[in-house]
Amino acid sequence: MDKKYWDIILESAKLFPSSLGYESWKFLVIDNSGMREDLKLIGWGAFNSLEGANKFVVALVRKNIVYNSNHVKHIAENVLGLSYYEGSPQSQFLKKSQEKAFKLTDDNYLYNWSVKQTYITLENMITTTSF
């Protein structure tokens, strides 16, 4: 696939919104043939894709995105340009949304929420390839 199309696909992932705006994903693009060979040993279900693709996307899911996590601080300060503190309006909104609206009250629920957010973004990347 042409680099221009890969750039569009990856840009679609960057621009795709997530629930509450705290992107819970990170994507690795593997275009090294040696790495693809190594992934065949552990990437069950991906063997054929690793065989035929010149690039391969690995989705990583962030754990424990909560109001006082480093990731939330990063988004507030470096993406939104806001001052971060645990009692800030955006931090408290996230806390209340997770605890009351979504009932994300333990690590398992938080992780499953992040996984679902990542799946949605992957779906958007796949949809982008249909142009």
Rank of each mutant, 00 (worst) to 15 (best):
K100I: 15
Y5S: 12
A53D: 08
E99N: 09
V79L: 10
N68Y: 13
A53I: 02
I9T: 06
A53C: 13
L10K: 07
S114P: 01
L110Q: 13
E37S: 12
D38W: 07
S49D: 14
I30M: 00
M1C: 12
T105I: 15
K40P: 04
A53G: 12
F102D: 08
S130F: 10
F56C: 05
F47E: 14
S130L: 12
D2N: 14
H71D: 03
Y22I: 11
G52K: 12
S12C: 08
L104K: 04
L60P: 07
K4D: 14
L80V: 04
E86P: 04
E37C: 08
W25S: 01
S91R: 05
A59I: 00
G87K: 13
L60S: 03
N112S: 09
L60C: 09
G34F: 12
K116T: 11
V79F: 06
K95R: 11
L104G: 01
F27D: 00
L122W: 00
L80P: 09
N124A: 13
G45E: 05
G21D: 06
N32G: 03
S18V: 07
N64R: 12
L94T: 01
L20D: 15
F102L: 15
L10C: 09
A59M: 03
D106V: 06
T118V: 03
H71A: 04
H74S: 10
G87A: 11
M35W: 10
A101K: 12
T105D: 13
L10S: 07
G45L: 04
L60Y: 02
N68T: 14
A101W: 11
Y67H: 13
V72Q: 02
L94P: 02
K3V: 15
H74R: 11
Y109K: 15
F93S: 11
G43N: 02
S24R: 08
M35K: 11
G87R: 09
E99W: 01
I42G: 06
F47C: 11
S114L: 04
I9E: 01
T118A: 00
D106Q: 05
S33Q: 15
Y5D: 14
L60F: 07
D2C: 12
A59E: 00
G43S: 11
V115E: 00
S91N: 06
G81P: 04
Y84V: 05
W44S: 14
L94G: 03
V29W: 01
R36C: 05
Q90P: 14
V66N: 10
P17G: 05
P89S: 10
F47P: 06
F27C: 02
G45D: 06
E23K: 13
V29L: 01
S24M: 10
E99A: 09
N108G: 08
A101D: 12
L50A: 06
N108M: 11
V58Y: 03
E51A: 03
L110D: 06
S69R: 08
K26S: 09
F16I: 06
Y5E: 15
K26L: 08
S97A: 15
I75Q: 06
Y84E: 03
T129N: 00
